[in-house]
């Protein structure tokens, strides 16, 4: 039986009807599993794409990071879709439209906030025309941090949503994400192209070259005394 966030079951008329027929429980359980499986792996995405994150969202649909491999289809109409991906800053002028489009989507529906503008407003948070996070307007299921998040992180976020959808259908509520521990960082779904053919010695040479530049950071941190490292005294000021 499917439940929503608060553990309340969906009042779907189909379940009531099926309960009236004895012996159908086995069939409905199998049917439920089939429905869970299909719902999880065919999430249709409605892109509420407003700004920079939209470009990176397009990249996630393009060839290097292919969102189709997750069974997700991008449809620019709310009435066909299960998931709204809010990619970009939402302004006061746009927020009523977002709300309206969200209400046009059929139940069950989910929302992904992609990028720091959709999550919290980022550095536009305090500006007169920007709403501080999309979760003040619509309920958000998954947050994908970044400015903008890399295209493969969109896949990770979609994977998290799939887990959540499946747990919901089994009547469970998923635990919240904590901060990722250092040794359990989520691996990107697809390796970056630069990583594969990058020589380890190149990284070493780059680090050495940046130290030679003497641009504040690295050299200062390596050579300075602990007191000045904590930012207490500026040499030029004294």
């Amino acid at each position: 039986m499917a439940v929503d966030e608060s553990g309340r079951p969906y009042a779907h008329p189909l379940y009531d009807t099926l309960d009236h027929f004895p012996g159908l429980s086995l069939a409905t359980t199998s049917l439920d599993r089939l429905l869970s499986w299909s719902a999880t792996n065919s999430l249709w995405i409605f892109p509420m794409a407003t700004s920079c994150c939209a470009i990176e969202f397009m990249t996630s649909a393009a060839n290097r990071v292919d969102i189709d491999q997750m069974g997700a289809v991008i449809r620019p109409t709310p009435r066909h879709c299960d998931v709204m991906v809010v990619a970009g800053t939402i302004t006061v002028k746009m927020a009523p439209r977002v709300k309206k489009l969200w209400e046009q989507m059929p139940e069950p529906k989910w929302c992904i906030a992609m990028g720091s503008c959709a999550i919290s407003g980022d550095f536009y948070r305090d500006i007169y025309s920007v709403i501080p996070g999309i979760d003040t307007v619509v309920p958000v299921d998954v947050y994908i941090p970044g400015c903008p998040p890399n295209a493969d992180q969109v896949l990770v976020g979609l994977k998290r949503l799939q887990e959540k959808v499946e747990l919901h259908r089994r009547g469970l509520v998923p635990a919240r994400d904590g901060r990722p521990e250092h040794d359990k960082m989520i691996d990107p779904a697809i390796g970056r192209v630069t990583d594969a053919d990058r020589d380890a010695s190149t990284t070493e040479q780059q680090l050495a070259a940046s130290r030679d530049l003497g641009l504040g950071g690295n050299s200062r941190r390596a050579s300075d005394t602990p007191s000045s490292r904590q930012g207490g005294v500026d040499e030029e000021a004294t």
């Binding site: 407003t50 700004s51 970009g88 800053t89 302004t91 002028k93 746009m94 439209r97 536009y124 500006i127 007169y128 025309s129 920007v130």
Partner: peptide, 8 residues
Amino acid sequence: YPGYLHRG
């Protein structure tokens, strides 16, 4: 009608 992304 522009202005739907006016971020000030």
